[in-house]
Design a protein around this nucleic acid. Structure first.
Length: 285
DNA sequence: AAAAGACTCAACCGCGGAGAC
DNA sequence: CGTCTCCGCGGTTGAGTCTTT
């Protein structure tokens, strides 16, 4: 392959046919749509030639799957979809196509773009390395509960079903390991506060969340829920740098992460920098 | 109103896996 | 086996659009 001076054209010397690049025209779209309507999709290289498109098979496939396919959803991702992306990404990482399989009508490209432009942007603004333990915990403990709250707000006006999972096409394919318990998030968020199990008991009094095992405290943590039930992995956690704590938010965290919290004079833990920032940024998404 | 900067997202690229020969 | 082709995936780019100054 060799590019010509015209960036929109690619010349194949072997076949001496001009291959178009760049944005698709209406005419090309129409050709592709009508060809697939008659012959079906697949065998993309052959399809491109047979349809009379001066495009690579790859380009045709991409155009069809990401843009022309009839069942593609348009518009912003719903909070339910965003939540599902966060959940599935925490499980599978950058397996965009796999994640997309659980969001009907959404493409891997769209999800990838969402992650890069929205999620990673938040990480940058907070000076957190996206994918780091700290970021993962931030997502778990602040972002996801906020999405749950959004979902709750949205559905409360239209339905008594807090999560409305049955009615959400985006969630019809949620793996059972990721499915939320019915009604779990109708509870006040404070009831789902993080608990900690300290390996270094001598330092537990400095930590912001009360150990929940005794279940007899009233230190309400505003926005943590318990995503262990969602099948979060614990992979990639650095166990060496700090004494580890396990949070009911599904993460094993090191001490440094809790620099983000502060304690009020009434022994009532409140969210500090990270929580507020994420909270505010969430509203922009 | 205009310029600059930030953001979005469609499209391209390179790579690796699968299957045919 | 090795080679070739096709396909699909994830990473990246850049033109167009939007927002801010």
């Amino acid at each position: 392959m060799s590019a010509t001076a015209n960036p929109e054209l690619l010349v194949s010397n072997e076949e001496e046919t001009e291959l178009r690049r760049g944005p698709w025209t209406l005419e090309e779209d129409s050709l592709l749509i009508h060809y697939i309507a008659r012959h079906g999709e697949g065998r993309w290289n052959m399809l491109a030639k047979s349809a009379g498109l001066k495009r690579t098979g790859k380009s045709c496939r991409l155009r069809w799957l990401n843009y022309l396919k009839p069942d593609i959803k348009r518009g912003n991702l719903t909070p339910q979809e965003q939540l599902l992306i966060l959940e599935l990404h925490s499980k599978w990482g950058n397996r965009w196509s796999k994640i997309a399989q659980h969001l009907p009508g959404r493409t891997d490209n769209e999800i990838k773009n969402y992650w890069r432009t929205r999620v990673q942007k938040q990480a940058r603004q907070l000076n957190i390395e996206s994918g780091s333990d700290r970021f993962i915990d931030a997502v778990r403990c602040f972002w996801m509960p906020r999405l749950h709250q959004k979902i709750e707000q949205n559905s409360s006006s239209s339905s008594s079903n807090i999560l409305n999972y049955e009615n959400s096409g985006a969630n019809n394919n949620v793996p059972s390991s990721l499915s939320p318990p019915q009604g779990e998030f109708t509870d006040t968020i404070a009831e789902n506060h993080c608990s900690l199990q300290f390996q270094d008991q001598t330092r537990s009094d400095q930590l912001p969340f009360e150990n929940d095992n005794n279940n007899n405290n009233n230190n309400n943590v505003n926005v943590c829920y318990n995503p262990i039930i969602y099948g979060y992995g614990m992979e990639g956690v650095n166990l060496e740098e700090f004494p580890m704590v396990e949070t009911s938010c599904g993460g094993i965290s090191n001490y440094s992460q809790f620099d983000y919290y502060s304690q009020s004079s009434e022994n009532d833990w409140v969210l500090n920098n990270m929580g507020d920032a994420l909270w505010n940024n969430m509203d922009q998404m």
